[in-house]
Design a protein around this nucleic acid. Structure first.
Lengths: 183, 183
DNA sequence: ACAACCATGTAAGTAGTTACATGATTTA
DNA sequence: TAAATCATGTAACTACTTACATGGTTGT
């Protein structure tokens, strides 16, 4: 149950309407917890009903912008959730499954797919590094900025690790192919 | 839709019944794609109906063991899936969200939670390294063994990265706390 | 005969995805 | 005034989770 808490965090950072949240998700919080606009609207209504957020006064109805802000109860709930004990989710990666399957049904064209992933991870890394340079200049050293940078660092390390792994995988496939040619 | 393909892979490695698959998942494929026994039974029935696997002849009925094996159509489907183009899933990590929330509602007891995660990641790393030493001795160099080791290496690197990140996070919190004391 | 365990299964609920619908506002 | 875009919403579906139910086998 993390999406409502992601929304509370985003709304504490800045009160917003649903679509604006959806767009902000695409370029910051969503890097670590993706959500579609349908999910976001549904959760915002639930949060409002639970008293965690309120919509700023406006004539309601379909198509009318509704700006939400966090209520004290929502802030308290977020704090409670941050301190909660939650085990890390196990790794879940389809590419690992596919590699294991390829070990049995292969050889296949999986190396081409790994090359494609390598490009995507490099692009994502470049994006993160750009954000890092733009949002966290050396002189900015507030508690909040340093903690947010720590989150971004996790993303950067994540991408670097996958880039290294893809390269290692491609090297192995090349070696296996050459060994296979000699048979 | 990866679970049916994970099951096809496991069944190609060795024909099994549902509960046996569930147990094997807990100590190998499940490291990369977790599933409960309810999910596994359901998917096995679907796979059987779709003609991807067959149950070995046995009187059926509740409580009777049903051993499944992969049919040619299942093997073909697995191969097709391995070669399919699939974008990498975006990173999804609640601890990152919690850290970002703590930057706003903190200070909290989140560092204690990070220490707890650190212990869990170290345990998981030790388990992976044990499996690596046991299942992949230097002399074992078949194509299948080398590819399966590559999968395990991804798990090992994953755990090492989180261990390093947790240590970095704890160091930062300590530094922030000392700086705070001086105010 | 009973307990412990093996094996499969049902039911209900939550979370996430995909496709589509509808009203309001801006702009050409 | 028509098209494009903004903004919110509905509906149907799939995947996953949690709790519980039921029958079969083995050991004492």
């Amino acid at each position: 149950m993390s999406l409502p808490h992601a929304l509370l965090t985003a709304l504490l950072e800045r009160p917003s309407a649903g679509l604006e949240l959806a767009r902000r998700f695409e370029r910051s919080i969503g890097f670590f917890w993706h959500a579609t606009h349908q999910q976001i609207y549904r959760e915002l209504r639930r949060l409002e009903q639970a008293g965690g957020v309120e919509a700023l006064p406006a004539e309601d109805g379909r198509g009318r912008k509704k700006v939400y802000r966090v209520l004290p109860a929502g802030r308290e709930e977020l704090r409670r959730w941050v301190e909660e004990s939650q085990d890390p989710r196990p790794l879940r990666d389809a590419l690992m499954l596919r590699l294991r399957a390829e070990a049995i049904v292969g050889p296949t064209s999986l190396p081409a797919e790994i090359r494609r992933h390598l490009v995507l991870h490099r692009q994502r890394l470049a994006l993160y590094e750009e954000i890092d340079a733009r949002d966290f200049p050396p002189e900015k050293t507030s508690r909040q900025a340093r903690l947010r940078r720590l989150v971004l660092q996790a993303g950067i390390e994540h991408e670097r690790r996958w880039i290294a792994w893809c390269e290692q995988a491609l090297a192995l496939f090349e070696e296996l192919e050459q060994a296979g040619d000699q048979d």
